[in-house]
Design a protein around this nucleic acid. Structure first.
Lengths: 299, 299
DNA sequence: ATTTGGCATAGATAAAATCTATATAGGTGA
DNA sequence: TCACCTATATAGATTTTATCTATGCCAAAT
């Protein structure tokens, strides 16, 4: 017995005709006849009196049909539920975000999201990449937003957007341009140890023997704001993600420096450990963030 | 989506393990995995979090499982119903019986049946073969009991039992034995026109130019009882079905005459026009009658 | 680092559903 | 009563689906 066979007998009962029922079910009359017969044999009950004109449902068949109706109705309910579930964006989601993304991207997206999805409770945690991966695995977080690639193979990532990185600062020459190769000669102000953007920049710029701060001053900033103050005061360079520019004054924007040969970029991705725990919500978040950010980055 | 797939996910939810669920469902783990995956793809909902240990049901999956339970429960209810229906012997059945069977077989079976099946209402109509076939076709009767073979192709018959026919009467020679070929020489008392047993005997005994009653007396009986009285009075022969002997006095039984070469028999069968209208009841009647009569005929 | 338990996947096989074409039965009108 | 018409049943071929065996892969535990 299967649901399809039940649908077949419901159709025959409704149309009082095998051929009309077959049309309705989008199968040939031969198929429908065979399936009805098979069901009747399995149940050991003859459901239809084919000699009657129009076809009649037997007494036993009537009882079977009532139950068949139930089964099919519930099956259809299940299918509609599954569609409804996929539409639904509600509930609590714990999101871990690394600081450099939190300070640059979140302002752009959060207000929009909470207004569009009033039934969605977003809990945002600002954590480092390493902590984020741990928390994903332990289940403390449902999803992370971080910069890829990452070493972990256990955590899956999906690219949200690719963001340009901008140089900011004061060159001794007073120029507004710089070659990539010259980067390693510059005094570069970086975020604290643990920020992945720091590591990325060190790698990108090949900053091993970099000139840094005066020896009597050691500052490692946690925020771009502090970093910018340092750069302004001590004269040097730092690196900012594109989305952070939204928060900068026009005066400071004039201190952005172009790289003459290509650009620095970073990937920002969603990271899951259990991709499907809150699939519909996370999938929607992914779409919304990607759309909103890419629209912003184009302008 | 099909019922089996729903049973699979119910098992996984129950056992928190694909392989245990597979054992439970008597399929391999590979099959169950594939089917669960297929269902998840069709619903576009991931039901199980396979990374959890033990396996966890996702939030969405939980909602699906609740509905799956419903569907499966109703499907099982349908299957049990079908079994119950096949057991059930109740309701009203209109049975047509030809007179020679009514007077011989019914007394044996009726009391037994109505006591064994108190919910069964048997309506018995005594009608001729021709009328019986008409009434079956028109739906006035659900089933008939008659002597086969019959000419009609529209009515289906199922053999109930084969019954010996006995000769009864008084031979002029005083003997208790007769050859078949001598039958046509005897004065034979028959039932009225319309009784099929009459026609059968005429055919069996090749009674064309038979000696019958004195010309000034024309009696055609409707009942064996009358027939026997005629035979006793006018001296001659008649033919009785085996089951009628139950109702005969011992005195009369001594006037039974053996055929020296073989026996006369008739087939008694159930006749349906719509074989499945009351299948379970009719099928049970068939079994009961055949069993009871054959048991009687053997003794 | 290696083993182990458990799910996924690939490829082959078996089972079931479906189709086309045709037979057959029941009803209808000449 | 015969031929015709309509509707269901059946046979055989084809496609789809379910299932199995064998193996890969991953994460947890030793």
């Amino acid at each position: 017995m299967n649901i399809q066979q039940l649908e077949y007998i419901l159709a025959v009962d409704q149309f009082k005709s095998f051929s009309k029922a077959a049309d309705y079910c989008h199968v040939t009359q031969a198929t429908l006849s065979a399936m009805v017969k098979k069901l009747e044999e399995q149940l050991d009950i003859v459901i239809f009196d084919r000699k009657a004109n129009p076809i009649a449902t037997t007494e036993n068949g009537r009882e079977i049909l009532i139950q068949a109706q139930q089964v099919v109705a519930h099956a259809n309910a299940l299918l509609s539920s599954s569609k409804a579930i996929n539409q639904k964006v509600e509930g609590r989601v714990k999101i871990g975000v690394i600081p450099t993304i939190a300070s640059s991207m979140l302002p752009l997206i959060m207000k929009y999201l909470v207004e569009k999805y009033p039934l969605l409770y977003l809990e945002i945690y600002e954590v480092t990449t390493n902590q984020l991966i741990k928390d994903l695995r332990s289940g403390k977080l449902d999803v992370g937003i971080l910069s890829t690639p990452i070493a972990s193979t256990e955590v899956e990532t999906e690219l949200l957007y690719v963001e340009d990185l901008y140089l900011y600062g004061h060159l001794t020459t007073g120029e507004k341009k710089l070659q990539k190769s010259a980067l390693s000669q510059q005094r570069m102000f970086l975020l604290q140890e643990g920020h992945c953007l720091r590591d990325q920049i060190i790698q990108l710029c090949d900053l091993k023997k970099q000139k840094s701060l005066p020896a009597n001053l050691s500052v490692e900033s946690n925020t771009f704001d502090t970093l910018l103050n340092l750069v302004d005061e001590f004269s040097g360079l730092t690196v900012l993600p594109a989305l952070y520019l939204d928060q900068m004054s026009e005066a400071r924007k004039s201190h952005l420096i172009d790289l003459t040969d290509g650009a620095l970029t970073r990937e920002v991705s969603l990271a899951y450990y259990r991709p499907y725990a809150k699939w519909n919500i996370l999938n929607r978040l992914k779409e919304e963030i990607a759309a909103k950010v890419n629209e912003r980055l184009k302008s």
